[in-house]
Simulated assay, not measured.
Amino acid sequence: MGRQSAGDTGAVNTVLGPVPARELGVVAVHEALLSVVPGAEHAFDVVIDRAEVFAAIAGKLREFRAHGGGTVVDAAGMFHGRDVRLYEALSRATGVHIVASTGQGPEEMLGGYFLTPQTNPPTPWPAERFAELFAKEAAEGMVVPRVERRGAAGLVATAATRTGMTATDESLLRGAARAALATGVPVSLRFGGDAVRELDVVLDEGIAADRVVVGGLDRAEAVAAGVPFEVARRGAYVAIDHVGTEDAAHVTDAERAELVAGLVAEGHGGRVLVSSNATGVAKGHEGNDLPYSHVLTAFVPLLKAAGLADEDVRRILVANPSALLSVR
């Protein structure tokens, strides 16, 4: 079942095993396939029919491929509906590569087991315990509950609390960085209250900046403060990953295009990623029902109108995610 990781082969860990990075094609780098609020699967009013879920997600993946897409990254982590066997079947049926993730966060989304409530007072897991948990999934395969390990995780995804990084969040960030260092996969950090400070915590563990992507950087307050440029200047990847979402918390797609153009103009084109944070199927919450192809069909024309050349667009959609996801 491809339990081994890609190793130092210029390959990427997908749910069907290592794939040469050059074969990924256009990558939707921050998406969700099956997204379930932890515990919702046990609710009386939530039905998860695997055949219906498969059909719905397969349709979206096929549409993505029809528009030139090659790979979807499920960046939701461990306990938000991740179904590795389902993802294997989806990849085989649609021809779309699927990269799944390990990791957790922020603190409010953790179960009590990870907060060790048996201590008095309750204390968070230390970073090393999170590192061991995440690294095992990236090196030996992701856990299918009560069954086995399957394909290796392709990245470690974590997030910090929106109101400010907690002690548990810091353990998660440090654990994610250590797991990435041990296994060669990258870290995906969905920033909370202070992207630069949270990035610094990850970098403090000794991981190279070009192995880290900071997500959520199209939030309005981050753009207004110039945070995407500061993250790029530190050498990390900047994820403009809510393309298609236009609300009070985020900038518009037109503003996103201008932001990307500004990053490219400042010399950071090799550190930009774009995605939609789209949801294939959501249970227990309202998902983001954009198609995975939204970036290709609606945002790429805006990028070109903002002055990006075809080679800039290809770098952002193909070369940058390929470099990030390559195990090394």
Rank of each mutant, 00 (worst) to 15 (best):
G105L: 06
F130L: 04
K136Q: 13
G193L: 00
M1F: 10
A261G: 02
V156A: 00
V73F: 05
R315I: 04
Y292L: 07
N120E: 08
A56L: 08
E148V: 12
F79A: 14
A232V: 12
G69T: 05
S101W: 04
A58E: 14
L259H: 00
G215M: 09
P291V: 09
V327D: 03
R50W: 10
V251C: 02
A179K: 03
G192A: 03
E205C: 11
A319Y: 02
L263D: 04
S91K: 04
A56W: 01
D74N: 14
A209K: 04
D289K: 15
H80R: 14
R314D: 15
T158L: 04
A225T: 08
G280Y: 01
T163L: 12
A254R: 15
K136T: 13
R211F: 09
A152M: 07
G7Y: 06
A139T: 10
K136G: 05
D83E: 12
G192H: 00
T279C: 14
R82P: 03
V147C: 07
Y113F: 13
D169T: 07
R129C: 04
T9I: 07
L61T: 06
V223P: 02
T279H: 13
E132N: 08
D200A: 08
V185K: 03
V72T: 06
N288V: 15
G280Q: 02
G280K: 01
L317E: 00
V84P: 03
L34D: 00
S91Q: 10
H67W: 09
I316M: 01
E52R: 15
P301F: 11
V19L: 12
R328D: 13
D8S: 11
G17H: 10
H285G: 09
G151K: 10
I316A: 01
T166S: 12
T297W: 06
A55I: 06
P126K: 09
P38W: 08
A254N: 07
